[in-house]
Design a protein around this nucleic acid. Sequence first.
DNA 1: CGTGTTCTTGACCAGTTGGTCAAAACAGGA
DNA 2: TCCTGTTTTGACCAACTGGTCAAGAACACG
Lengths: 208, 208
Amino acid sequence: MLMTVKVQPPKTRIQRKNTQAILDAALEVFSRQGFRGATLDQIAAEAGLSKPNLLYYFPSKEAIHVSLLTELMTTWLDPLRDLDPDGEPVEELMTYVRRKLEMSRDFPRESRLFANEIIQGAPRMIGALEGELRDLVEEKSAVIRGWIAAGKIADLDPHHLLFSIWALTQHYADFDVQVRAVLGPGHDPLAEAGSFLDGLFTRLLRPE
Amino acid sequence: MLMTVKVQPPKTRIQRKNTQAILDAALEVFSRQGFRGATLDQIAAEAGLSKPNLLYYFPSKEAIHVSLLTELMTTWLDPLRDLDPDGEPVEELMTYVRRKLEMSRDFPRESRLFANEIIQGAPRMIGALEGELRDLVEEKSAVIRGWIAAGKIADLDPHHLLFSIWALTQHYADFDVQVRAVLGPGHDPLAEAGSFLDGLFTRLLRPE
DNA sequence: CGTGTTCTTGACCAGTTGGTCAAAACAGGA
DNA sequence: TCCTGTTTTGACCAACTGGTCAAGAACACG
């Protein structure tokens, strides 16, 4: 008896389109309202589907959320993964900063989804934080320590240097409303942040 | 006819105690769950009161939230208000950074409450952001620009310098879970942040 | 076309939510 | 002690919530 083995779920064209619409809508809603604050009705409306139809594609509200978070966790760390131990130290770190800021500009909803989850105590992510994330940070911290020892960059605690990069770049996505309220109209916050952070980190990383 | 004029609501001992318990419980719950995610039952339980009793002291869930936010807005900006135009520039800014970090250490719930509100689009705060906050920032930006012109500190855009201070200090309250997960046990994140940020801003502000 | 499969939905359900209300419990001064 | 104003609560409500289900609609493909 011959069968096509379904390694990945089959994914007809309709399935792909609808799961994508759902995830996109859910990202929009979860990133603003957090998990508890979001409702299936909002997500369904945003996706242009009926609520029972959502639950045809995903078994539960939580499944949608988890799906978003795991997808996010994978791509979110890419820029850090790409930090090249063999590259030119300052250039590598500046590239990392720039890419993180670009992500704040291009994927603010993802950034807010992440922020929401962390602020709420990371109930569904604490494992990934203490596992994947921690391991990656440990690995890259060692690289940075090497650069410091070699006198290539200033002497800065690698952990807190990374926290600084995260804080400074993600701030422009997560606190976008505040930033715009303070700057007033006629500003391009992300562009200004680009040159500001460029200068900041250039100065900061330069060994004395 | 003589009457004691009730400028402030009367506030018997019981009233003071209970409103305080409610606000404290609400801060705990709202700061973790956001407005929509929080429930009156959770707040009531946390405060040790019955739900109808909550609504004896506050007319609605929203009233509690607004009460917290306005109280917060007042005290949250104090450190910036205290930035003294006549003080020693670097010292003034370093003091500001230290005080902001102390607030992250001592009032993390307030910080998260604020973060939650902003991430959700600041529906109940946008006015204060575009008013009070914007005005204060404008005032202090002028002071900072003066310091730069006088060659007392490095040439940094005042707006984005303030954003940086906010981002770097509040990160340790809002992303506390992540910071601890990455650092692992045996660390005192806020203490480390203290000396790290001290070094960072010392180096950053020094005019070249 | 016909037919088996995939997709969609209206009706429904039990639990939760913010909020009301009248009546009871409690203070504290005269 | 009684009496009046304050505080507390159990019972209740309508709207909303996540989720189910059976039946119908749309699809793919021989």
